[in-house]
Nucleic acid binder design. Sequence first.
DNA 1: TTTTGTGTGAAAATGTTGTCATAATGTGGG
DNA 2: CCCACATTATGACAACATTTTCACACAAAA
Lengths: 226, 226
Amino acid sequence: MTTFSHKILIVDDELDILEFLSYNLKKEGYQVFTAASGDEGIRIAKKELPHLVLLDVMMPGLDGIEVCRELRTSPGMDDVIIAFLTARSEDYSHIAGFDAGADDYINKPIKPRVLISRIKALLRRNQTGKDNASLDMGGLRIDRESYLVIKDGVELSLPRKEFELLSLLASKPGKVFAREEILNRVWGEEVVVGDRTIDVHIRKLREKIGEDFIKTVKGVGYKFEF
Amino acid sequence: MTTFSHKILIVDDELDILEFLSYNLKKEGYQVFTAASGDEGIRIAKKELPHLVLLDVMMPGLDGIEVCRELRTSPGMDDVIIAFLTARSEDYSHIAGFDAGADDYINKPIKPRVLISRIKALLRRNQTGKDNASLDMGGLRIDRESYLVIKDGVELSLPRKEFELLSLLASKPGKVFAREEILNRVWGEEVVVGDRTIDVHIRKLREKIGEDFIKTVKGVGYKFEF
DNA sequence: TTTTGTGTGAAAATGTTGTCATAATGTGGG
DNA sequence: CCCACATTATGACAACATTTTCACACAAAA
């Protein structure tokens, strides 16, 4: 069997990042293409039909989201895996809405080892045809199908309410969910539970997945961030 | 072998789009059903159990999202592939909250060639592993043809219900099957059996194949793992 | 008939969920 | 800047729900 090499396209306007990523991925044996703008990214993507596209969200001109949209509607691109590169500080709320095409979000700054393992996971996933109903972010994977949360590679099995709560919050990173809304969607409209119930579940979640993912917005509710 | 034809249901309130899509899909050999409203779509879906549903997001009355929700919670519909049709200009944020069921988003206007290739990809994706006659995993082989389970080389002969239950769970390792889903697919839609029936069969299975393969997810269902 | 398969109900075991009291923390007014 | 107030965090526990397990009844097959 000849060694098969995946094609990866990196689109980012910052040249040093481009080089950094390119270097590390090539070292892993991937076939790497780079583009410094959205337009160029689309052109190369159409020509090379890469298996995976790393897409910077913030770019002058065509931004990552628009590129993603364009790619997703291009012929032959149906199976392309698209991962967004996002700066940790950026507000995710506007991205969150766009769940049509992203397979993963990867935070900058990026440690090579982490990047490689995420990319391997992504490529593996799509190869087995297992189109997982799973979200992957900040070292946390939430798999709605297997009811499993994987944190840094370690499986956590959460009780139902906790899982649903996390699942809800993480479905729209950055968005603040009001307590009322949480109650409606996790517990249901008619169910009546005390005021502290949510807090307690939030606490248990934080114990399990770490303190940093769920942020309290006093007087309003909670939000998920990564 | 006779040619197998996939059933596709299109739901859209614009009749010319309905016709346009219908024409193109029929030409490809698909069995096409159409509905001009959400209600009609649900009715037809329940009757025909299509493999794939193309769902317009914006419709008067029941919109695509609501239809999708309804379908996803209908018995037997778990494997239906649902793709949303969206106008390019539409804001995705309101869709985002709805993470329950869409397998794909397809932008209008639609080029036939693109549509066909997306649909093929979607159908292909879901088909894998479905018709496998023999599954082999973790020292356990499940042979649907000979109705035999072989554990570490030893033949086990399981009663029909037990075999079908195991077969279902193992058809998608990792996936949690809700009790409701199990009932529908192993016992059938109309059959009414008590709550404890599933548990007892699970228990007998565990006795025979070992305790570790079938995991309980409390409040949700069971899943197979190896 | 004997054996095997299948479903039921009731008790026990298990894990999950909700509530309370109390501490900690943040917020806005003075 | 500090205080009083409102809100949230936390830990222990009680209440609850679901699943397990068992013994048994009945049906279907051998």
